Amino acid sequence: MTLDALSYFFNGMSLAFFVIAAIHAALCARRSGSRPHYLFAVCLAWMALIEIKELFISFSPTYQYEVLGPGFTFPDLFTLPLLSLFFFELVMPGRITVRYAARLLAPFVLLAGAYCAGLAFQPREVYYSFGELLGALPSYLPLMLLLYVLYTIVYCIFALARIVTYSLRYADQIAQAYSFTERIHLRWMRWMSAVLACYLICYIGIITFTSTAPYIIFTFLMTLGVWGILYGCIIQYRIPEIIHNYWQEESAVPDADDESPTEKCGRIAALRQQVAAAIDERRLYLDPGLTIVDLATECGTNRTHLSRFFNSELGIPFRDYINRCRVEHATRLMAGNDHKIEELALLAGFGSTTTFYRAFAKEKKMTPQQWLDSHKGQQPVTGEPCISELAAPRERK
Rank of each mutant, 00 (worst) to 15 (best):
T2N: 15
L3H: 01
L3Y: 09
G12E: 12
M13E: 12
A21W: 12
A22N: 10
A22M: 11
I23A: 15
L27S: 12
C28D: 14
A29C: 06
L39D: 06
L39R: 14
F40L: 08
F40M: 07
F40A: 05
A45L: 15
W46R: 03
I52K: 00
L55H: 11
F56V: 10
S60M: 05
P61G: 01
T62S: 06
Q64G: 02
Y65P: 01
E66Y: 05
V67N: 13
L68S: 10
G69Y: 06
P70F: 10
P70N: 07
T73Q: 06
F74G: 00
D76C: 03
L82R: 09
L85I: 07
V91C: 13
G94M: 12
G94I: 14
G94H: 14
R95D: 05
A101K: 06
R103P: 01
L104Q: 15
L105N: 09
P107K: 11
P107W: 11
P107V: 12
L111R: 05
A114K: 04
C116A: 11
G118A: 07
L119D: 02
A120E: 11
Q122V: 04
R124H: 10
E125Q: 14
V126T: 14
Y127C: 01
Y128V: 02
Y128M: 02
Y128E: 03
F130Q: 03
L133C: 03
L133Q: 02
G135E: 06
A136T: 03
A136F: 04
S139M: 08
S139V: 13
Y140V: 05
T152H: 11
C156T: 15
Q173M: 11
A177F: 08
L186A: 05
R187G: 12
C198W: 08
Y199C: 01
I201R: 10
I204Y: 07
I206G: 00
F209M: 07
S211A: 13
Y215H: 02
T219M: 04
T223G: 04
L224A: 15
G225C: 08
I229W: 14
I229T: 12
G232K: 09
C233L: 14
I234V: 15
I234Q: 07
Q236L: 15
P240M: 10
I242F: 09
I243E: 13
H244A: 08
Q248C: 08
Q248R: 12
E249H: 13
E249W: 09
E249M: 10
E250P: 01
C265G: 12
G266N: 14
I268Q: 13
A270D: 06
Q274N: 11
A277Q: 09
I279V: 15
D280G: 01
E281H: 14
R282C: 01
Y285Q: 04
L286V: 04
T291M: 02
T297R: 12
G300P: 02
R303N: 08
H305D: 11
L306C: 08
S307C: 13
S307V: 06
S307Q: 13
I316V: 15
P317M: 12
D320H: 11
D320I: 09
Y321A: 09
Y321S: 08
Y321V: 07
N323W: 06
H329G: 01
G336F: 04
N337F: 07
H339V: 03
L346W: 12
A348M: 10
T355N: 08
K364H: 04
T367L: 05
Q370N: 03
W371G: 00
L372M: 08
S374Q: 15
G377H: 07
G383K: 01
P385C: 02
I387K: 06
E395K: 07
